[in-house]
Design a protein around this nucleic acid. Structure first.
Lengths: 341, 341
DNA sequence: GTGAAAGCGCTAACAA
DNA sequence: TTGTTAGCGCTTTCAC
């Protein structure tokens, strides 16, 4: 309870120097492995002193003199609700780590005030840059104060052309998902898309149409249905779907597919025998454990985080416009070959 | 590309002082609102200079002189796989924020080396303390290096009695879940528990038995089944369950309940009419969108994070042993009243 | 009321 | 090969 319980005045470089009988600069050199040539025994004495005393460098002092920290700020809008943000953080963390940087994470849960204060706190800590991320792919207004140090948008983008962004390749994902179905011989592929306009909605549709075109199949608007992007949406679409000639369905996301499974099962229909299904997102907890396990296309959240820090650190070749990250297909068991006719 | 693009030498307190025609100490006083009596006009000149110059305090310098940072470290073992860690982070973040602290997050994804380096990096940044958290409730060995500054375990605990911990009240949760069923008149309540020993398994079983006892119902071991704690487990349990007299089932977690729903549906049985079901965890994405929506008991991850920082900051009365956080029941629509007999 | 000055722990010239 | 020294940006006595 009293002021220095457990704190016992940290040992500093000076203490080490004194113990080793050398100067602080010598200690500094051995600690940092600079190219200065330090004598064998001086080095050894220092090393010994370091671990006898349990010396641990003070990162704040170091950063102060170097003028910049090894921090990368990550502000996320919804860390709590889905695993998505977690995956972005994870990817960013790993990459940052690899380059000797540390993540400062702030969650704003949509609160603008929290966001402003998070950003300002990060700036005060002289972060190397800030990753601004959203839990679903969308356009954002870059908050004031950002762009001051380097900013990169992750899983979102801005009309403000000068701020870099990395986003999932929705269209490529839509294309690949559709291809998974086409490759099994399906000709009537329905698409349960969401109703609300969004990069996901438009992008995936584009990809779907492109895949159809490549396969020489005419686009049939009657095969794309508007649904709520949740279990309920997939479930509700079943009657209409069964009235259509579709033998395969591309769902806007895994949750829709889950609802679809349910509706089908209620009617004694089976996936994939009666209908082949492919999802989008690859939400492990859901997709991998449905019956049958759901083939889908993964939203590359980790990669988004990783690439985000790479562009922040200038490791990625500059590109005009957002960097689109590939959404890799995940093959499981919800797709069967179309009946030959 | 060149060394100081965008960096333009940060404006310091000295710049502000010069601009305002006062000394740095005066600036410091107004910035920090110390109780020093600063004249009206000096104060105003300083404030004006601050925002003309766009001054922003350097947190590193400040921390250096104060000797301690406002950082709280949070090391998590699995931020990516589930939303669980995200909720802990969120809770911790909010509480830390409220007390003027910032979260330094590191994810170790089970890797011991990463963990050690994360901890050491946090220590170098002179964090106020470290929250060590796991994504599922379990016993851990406190990593070396921890306990040096204040450490608190979140969602885990250690035999090492001296390190504080905050964990979910599994037994209370098991009790309440069972009660939800009992309250509707069910007398034969099955329990689909996991097989692997764990605090969750033992705790929930304890709670289940306690609730039964309170209701004057004899414990029937034949009503507790061992299943894999996933969809597959719930699904596989259906035959045995149907052979039992159970009219209600308490599932080890929501995923098991999800598999159970599936198996039941395959047999044309309906929840809750044919069988009442209650889960555990309250995984939103799943539980809230099943058909019918699943009644369950929530794992209080946010609260765990929040309480974690509270005990770290010494805001929580000390307690012997881990602090058990309540798991609140979430009523949805998977429970029906038992048939009167 | 306000300012001068001494550090916080460390790095980086530069001297020796 | 090693030591001296001047800061990094800020807080905080202590004088004036």
């Amino acid at each position: 309870m009293n002021k220095d319980e457990g704190v016992r005045r940290a040992v500093t470089m000076r203490d080490v120097a004194r113990e080793a009988g050398v100067s602080v600069s010598t200690v500094s050199h051995v600690v940092n492995n600079t190219d200065a040539r330090i004598g064998q025994d001086a080095r050894e004495r220092v090393l010994r002193a370091i671990d006898e005393l349990g010396y641990r460098p003070n990162a704040m002092a170091k950063n102060l003199v170097k003028g910049s920290s090894r921090f990368i700020g990550l502000v996320a809008d919804a860390i709590a609700s889905t695993p998505f943000a977690g995956r972005i953080i994870h990817g960013a963390q790993e990459e940052a780590w690899q380059h000797g940087h540390v993540l400062l994470v702030a969650n704003t849960e949509g609160n603008t005030a929290a966001e402003a204060s998070a950003i300002s706190m990060m700036l005060e800590h002289k972060v190397r840059g800030i990753l601004y991320s959203t839990w679903y792919h969308r356009e954002v207004a870059v908050p004031a104060g950002l762009a001051a140090p380097d900013t990169v948008l992750v899983n979102c983008f801005s009309a403000q052309a000068d701020v870099r962004a990395v986003v999932p390749d929705e269209s490529g994902g839509g294309h690949d998902a559709t291809r998974m179905l086409l490759d099994q011989g399906h000709r009537h592929v329905a698409f349960l898309n969401t109703r609300a306009p969004s990069p996901a909605r438009e992008g995936r549709l584009l990809g779907y149409r492109r895949a159809l075109a490549e396969a020489g199949i005419a686009y049939d608007p009657g095969l794309v249905f508007q649904v709520r992007p949740e279990q309920e949406g997939g479930f509700a679409a079943v009657p209409a779907l069964l009235r259509s000639p579709a033998t395969a369905v591309f769902c806007h996301n895994d949750r829709v597919a889950m609802g679809l499974y349910d509706g089908l099962r209620d009617r004694g229909l089976r996936v994939p025998d009666d209908l082949s299904v492919v999802g989008f997102d690859n939400q492990e907890v859901i997709a991998a454990h449905m019956r049958p396990p759901l083939s889908t296309v993964a939203l590359p959240h980790e990669e988004l985080g990783r690439r985000g820090v790479r562009v922040l650190l200038g490791l990625e070749p500059a590109e005009a416009g957002p960097i689109a990250v590939n959404c890799p297909p995940v093959h499981r068991r919800s797709i069967a070959a179309a009946e030959p006719r």
